[in-house]
């Protein structure tokens, strides 16, 4: 659910994991993640109070322990859905660590463009732990680039090419970063918010 990462709107964010709060707890409030364009989420937050408690996740505790300060924020959304937020430049270390911990199936890579930042989001499933880890990484909007994780998961190859093609995030160290779905001579990256769909001229 709501992943409101705006610290100022979370008066109740406590460092503890188990509360009766709907979505996620802010572990440490990230300095750079906030300030998305979502303004009035704070209000929506209050309503779903009486949800069932967010379960604890052993895997998440392990990850936090292994990564230490690299994790800007970590939270549990619901059973089998755990999230961490890290800086873009740390992705390679983080990926290596979580892969060694058993998160072996890179399910998808998505680029998301917010008003003030971009994010490269990795969804990683662990066949052994049966949990889905989401790594949200911050990427600068002016020069979107991040290290490639193809050396860790081969499935990242096409997924990164697709994200590069449609969103324009450059994956440094990718063996063969070129467009995959669109033609080579296509101009622009269609999933950017400033790319407008035009009606056909008839």
């Amino acid at each position: 659910m709501a992943d409101e990462e705006r610290p100022e709107e979370q008066p109740e964010a406590k460092p503890e994991e188990v509360t009766v709060e709907p979505a996620e707890k802010t572990e440490e409030k990230p300095k750079e993640l906030p300030k998305a364009e979502e303004k009035k989420e704070g209000a929506e937050e209050e309503k779903p109070k009486k949800k069932k408690p967010v379960p604890k996740s052993k895997a998440l505790d392990e990850i936090k322990k292994a990564l230490g300060d690299t994790v800007l924020k970590a939270w549990v959304q619901r059973e089998r859905r755990i999230y961490i937020a890290v800086k873009g430049e740390n992705i390679l270390d983080v990926a290596k660590t979580v892969q060694e911990m058993g998160f072996d199936h890179l399910s998808s890579i998505s680029g998301v463009e917010y008003e003030d930042r971009m994010e490269s989001v990795y969804h990683i499933w662990s066949y052994e732990k049966r949990e889905l880890l989401t790594i949200r990484t911050l990427v600068s909007k002016d020069d979107p680039k991040i290290d490639s994780v193809t050396s860790i998961w081969k499935s990242a190859d096409w997924l990164e090419r697709e994200t590069y093609d449609l969103m324009g995030i450059k994956f440094e160290g990718h063996p063969d970063l070129r467009r995959i779905l669109l033609p080579d001579d296509f101009k622009g990256h269609p999933l950017r918010k400033d790319f407008e769909l035009k009606a056909k001229p008839w």
């Binding site: 659910m1 709501a2 979502e38 399910s107 998808s108 998505s110 998301v112 969804h123």
Partner: peptide
Amino acid sequence: PFGEVYSRTEAPRGELSMYLVSDGE
């Protein structure tokens, strides 16, 4: 409402998932 969700299913061809982000507005 504002939030994100990763929905996974087992389609006939394999894991079909969608990552949906809503801005709440």
